[in-house]
Nucleic acid binder design. Structure first.
Length: 538
DNA sequence: CCTGTAATAT
DNA sequence: AATATTACAG
């Protein structure tokens, strides 16, 4: 609607202060100080003139961002914002006025066309529902009378106790009380209108809004620190935002933890239910299109020896629990290896990564099984909509491609790789331990096939700084390397099953070489491998 | 001075 | 509903 950037605008480039300098009016109690925001210069001018006639002190701008900045700096210089309905918000598709209400405690008058008001009544309704601050509506064309009435609403708003809403009269139910209140406060207004609290609190910091972006930073910080080491102060430092206080983080963290707890209880519940329906036969669900889901009956006690593991606390998902089918894989998008994941009844356990343009010039697909903590977080934060264990189409989690030579610190304890060329998974020469692993792992000699399966885990993930987070020692399921403790069967079998799946995905003819060479066809690991393959062959 | 938790305020 | 603030214990 409104012109976007107007070269021929009558208005100045930046916020155009058309009244005496704002500072002189900071304490103004007579004239109302208006901030008018509208993309359309003509409209802006029109309203500006009107407002002048009403003896308001007027500031105009036609960019939402300007308005926001202006308010952030000089919130105390304004009493009301007049804002065009169609002004977009900054981030998503919200309206500017919603941002304003959210961030500032200031009355907002929304101006909209007749069309907006009548046709999209739903929108208007939602607007009116916003009870975060005063929000009124004026329908264009706006008359001088409308404007001159603004201050009444606003002054009323100031003296009203913040709690009560001031919804429009829809004539229904118990609005009587509110109305009464209203008239009372109008009287009050005259008594004490000059020491209105709100605009006189100049340095009141705007409340911190946890946008998606900010939340993502928060989660990143938590992941970096490790979930149990993430404390407000450190998170704050990692996020590195000037406005952010420790209290902000503490508050958010508090909420975040509650959220996590709830989620994990939910998934526990799901697991319990899944266990009740154990021995039911192999479900052959739909493999329509890209989605393949199967639940396989596997009753091996995968966690049996885990309790003995010294660092069991680091791996809550691997703690002993009733055996559940652990081969419910789902690759949501077989056509696009850049996105995807693997999940079983423990949640998301792995993600599919793709590395092209590494310095071998070869393409690699990796299935990286995640540390439980990461997978748990991934589940909760990146797949918020997956109410079931199924990925939703919209839930794909795009993983950044790690640069060559860089080891991902969140990948553990297993990485299953499929090289599409004839190269090792990675060039590990820069990381001696990994290099060693490549040469000594189960199948590491066999470059170029699925043979490049290996397992490992980070021995000292806690050792803190991101740079020191390197996979410190690898082991295989049959061989101990570097005195590392061997993890129990569960992850291994899972990884092998995943390798099978992956090999299918990659159309590798070499796939079948792996298990027979290593385990013999009778081994339970071989079963897993076949399971993985079967899953994806449908 | 910091953390975690709960309660309460805005 | 989301965020901020506060109180209190550790």
């Amino acid at each position: 609607m409104a012109a976007n950037s107007n070269p021929n605008s009558l208005i100045h480039e930046n916020a155009n202060i058309t009244s005496p300098p704002l500072l002189d009016h900071q304490q103004s109690t007579t004239a109302l100080r208006l901030l008018i925001v509208d993309h359309d210069p003509a409209n802006l001018k029109l309203i500006q003139d009107l407002a002048f006639q009403c003896n308001y002190i007027v500031t105009t701008c036609y960019e939402g961002s300007q308005a926001l900045n202006l308010l952030r700096e000089k919130r105390e210089c304004f009493d009301v914002v007049l804002c065009d309905f169609h002004m977009p918000g900054i981030i998503d598709d919200t309206h500017l006025f919603e941002h304003l209400l959210q961030e500032f405690n200031i009355p907002v008058v929304v101006m909209c066309s007749m069309d907006d008001a009548s046709s999209s009544s739903a929108v208007m309704e939602s607007m009116m529902k916003k009870e975060k601050g005063a929000c009124y509506n004026l329908v264009k064309p706006i008359r001088e009378e409308d404007l001159s009435n603004i201050w009444q609403n606003v002054m009323m708003e100031k003296t009203l106790t913040r709690k009560e809403d001031y919804c429009d009269d829809d004539g229904s139910e118990g609005t009587v009380n509110k109305k009464k209140r209203r008239s009372v406060s109008i009287e009050e207004r005259d008594d004490n209108h000059d020491h209105v609290q709100q605009p006189n609190t100049p340095n009141k910091k705007p409340r911190f809004v946890w946008t998606n972006e900010r939340h993502r930073m928060f989660v990143d910080a938590v992941l970096q620190l490790g979930i149990d080491k993430a404390v407000p102060k450190k998170i704050m430092e990692l996020m590195d935002m000037p406005q952010l206080t420790r209290e902000n983080v503490a508050s958010h963290l508090q909420k975040f933890r509650i959220h996590m707890r709830k989620k994990s209880e939910e998934s526990q519940q799901i697991i319990r239910e899944a266990n009740n329906n154990t021995s039911s036969s192999l479900k052959t669900t739909n493999h329509n299109n890209a989605q393949i889901t199967q639940t396989l009956p596997l009753a091996r006690p995968y966690y049996s020896d885990l309790a003995a593991a010294a660092n069991v606390a680091d791996y809550p998902f691997y703690q002993p629990q009733p055996a559940i089918p652990d081969a419910t894989f789902e690759f949501p998008n077989n056509n696009n290896p850049l996105f995807g994941g693997v999940m079983n009844n423990n949640g998301i356990i792995g993600r599919l990564d793709h590395q092209s343009n590494n310095n071998h010039g070869r393409s690699i697909i990796m299935l990286n099984l995640l540390q439980p903590q990461q997978s748990s977080l991934m589940m909760q934060n990146n797949y918020p909509h997956s109410s079931s264990n199924l990925f939703q189409q919209s839930d794909y989690y795009p993983m950044p491609t790690p640069p060559p030579h860089q080891t991902c610190d969140d990948e553990a304890p297993f990485q299953v790789g499929m090289s599409c060329g004839r190269s090792p998974l990675f060039d590990y020469s820069s990381t001696p331990l990994l290099h060693h692993q490549m040469n000594n792992s189960l199948l590491g000699q066999d470059s170029g096939s699925i043979a490049q399966f290996h397992g490992g885990y980070t021995t000292a993930p806690a050792s803190a700084s991101p740079s020191s987070l390197s996979p410190a020692g690898f082991f295989s399921s049959t061989t101990h390397h570097h005195n590392q403790q061997q993890l129990p069967n569960y992850p291994t079998s899972l990884a092998i099953a995943a390798a099978g799946a992956l090999s299918y995905l990659s159309n590798s003819s070499a796939a079948t070489q792996v298990p027979t060479a290593l385990y013999g066809s009778s081994s339970s690991l071989f079963d897993d491998y076949q399971l993985g393959q079967a899953l994806f062959q449908g």
